[in-house]
């Protein structure tokens, strides 16, 4: 690892203006979280990769439409309806880092990380299927879990769970 990396690490350990890879940092229960802007999503991932975060293990999203309490975000980050969450791992340092980007409801589009971390292929497709967030630059963004003819995105908060009231039909008459 080069000297610059250590500098970045030192920077991030300062309590005041915590920044890493050009993004505000927050700590969620001892887990380091960076908050890149949606436009800088891919560039941040590239910087992470070059800094030794060699695997993107997980990408998911959260729909904050009905979130009751206040969202704890670092200063300068405006909350949006969707949030794309990515987890990175460094085999060398044996550490994890999480990136959370705000994606607006009006235009749910964010860059795909496919080029930097090709392993996100199906993960991004799942997010697209479940939340309707479009990843630009993904080679084959299509539905993965639901049938291709399905309408709607099930994990959005305004999508009904679809529970059917349970009733007993055709039961023998009571004796």
């Amino acid at each position: 690892m080069s000297d610059e990396t250590e500098e970045v690490a030192e920077e991030s350990s300062e309590p005041e203006a915590e920044m890493a890879y050009g993004c505000p940092v927050s700590w969620s229960l001892d887990q380091k979280v960076i908050h890149p802007a949606a436009e800088a999503w891919k560039a941040t991932a590239a910087a992470l990769y070059l800094d030794g975060w060699n695997m993107c293990v997980d990408i998911t999203a959260v729909d904050y439409l009905t979130f009751a309490s206040n969202r704890q975000l670092p200063a300068g980050i405006a909350p949006e309806r969707y949030e794309v969450v990515a987890n990175f791992i460094s085999h060398e340092r044996r550490e994890r880092i999480r990136a959370r980007a705000q994606v607006s409801a009006a235009d749910p589009v964010i860059d795909s990380l496919y080029e930097v971390f090709p392993g996100v292929d199906t993960l991004e497709r799942e997010v697209f299927d479940m939340f309707g967030i479009t990843f630009t630059g993904h080679p084959d963004l299509s539905r993965i879990l639901m049938p291709e003819t399905w309408e709607g995105h099930p994990l959005r908060k305004d999508f009904a769970t679809g529970a059917i009231p349970v009733q007993f039909k055709g039961a023998p008459p009571a004796r």
Partner: peptide, 16 residues
């Protein structure tokens, strides 16, 4: 089937 049909539309169109 057993003649029991549950309407399970969940906002889906006829096609699906």
């Amino acid at each position: 089937g057993a003649g029991i049909i549950v309407e399970q539309r969940d906002g889906q169109g006829e096609s699906s």
